[in-house]
Computed example of a mutant assay.
Amino acid sequence: MSDFDQMGIVIDWVDACRKGDLATLLDLYADDAEVECSCNGPHFSYRGRRELETYWGPRLSAFASAGFGLEEINPAPDGVDLEYSIAGSLRVRASFRFSAEGKIHSTLCRPSRQNSHDGCAC
């Protein structure tokens, strides 16, 4: 068990996404953090602050303008699992794992339940 609030960190992550606040979002990640995404077909991996900034920058703009919703958040055996929606319907499932220092060490995102006409925009 960690001595930091993993759920609270993910809620801060959600708040940063809702606001389109890239600096705050990046500060939640460890310096060597990795985001793995399989939402738009092939699996892509981004590591380190510069690559995470390249990955999240355009997405946060889209999230802020389309609307970003928290659908479900649950503790997991080794982190936190989150389901969020974009524009009220596009759904993404993200799994967060943490460093000992209380930073996000990895995020794995993948498509979740989708309406038949929607894709994934994580």
Rank of each mutant, 00 (worst) to 15 (best):
G69E: 09
G67T: 10
V35N: 04
G79P: 01
M1R: 08
E71M: 10
I86G: 06
G41V: 01
M7D: 06
F4S: 08
R110A: 00
G67K: 12
F63I: 10
E101R: 14
D27S: 08
D15I: 08
S61I: 14
E72K: 15
R47M: 04
P58N: 11
A87C: 14
F98M: 05
P58A: 13
A64C: 05
A121N: 11
Y55H: 06
L52W: 04
D81Y: 08
E34C: 03
G79N: 06
I86F: 13
D78Q: 14
R97W: 11
L52F: 02
F68V: 02
E83C: 08
D27V: 00
R18T: 02
R50N: 15
A94Y: 10
R47V: 14
S65R: 13
S38P: 00
I9D: 00
Y55S: 03
F68K: 01
F44H: 13
A64G: 04
E36G: 08
G8A: 12
V92M: 10
D32Y: 12
Q114F: 06
G102R: 13
L22N: 00
S61K: 11
E83M: 09
G119S: 09
G102P: 00
S99I: 12
Q114E: 05
Y46S: 01
L90K: 10
G57E: 09
L82M: 13
Y46K: 00
A23F: 09
G79Q: 13
R91D: 00
T24D: 11
P75H: 14
K103V: 01
S2D: 10
R113M: 02
C39N: 10
Y84I: 11
I11T: 05
N40P: 00
S106E: 12
L108N: 04
S85D: 11
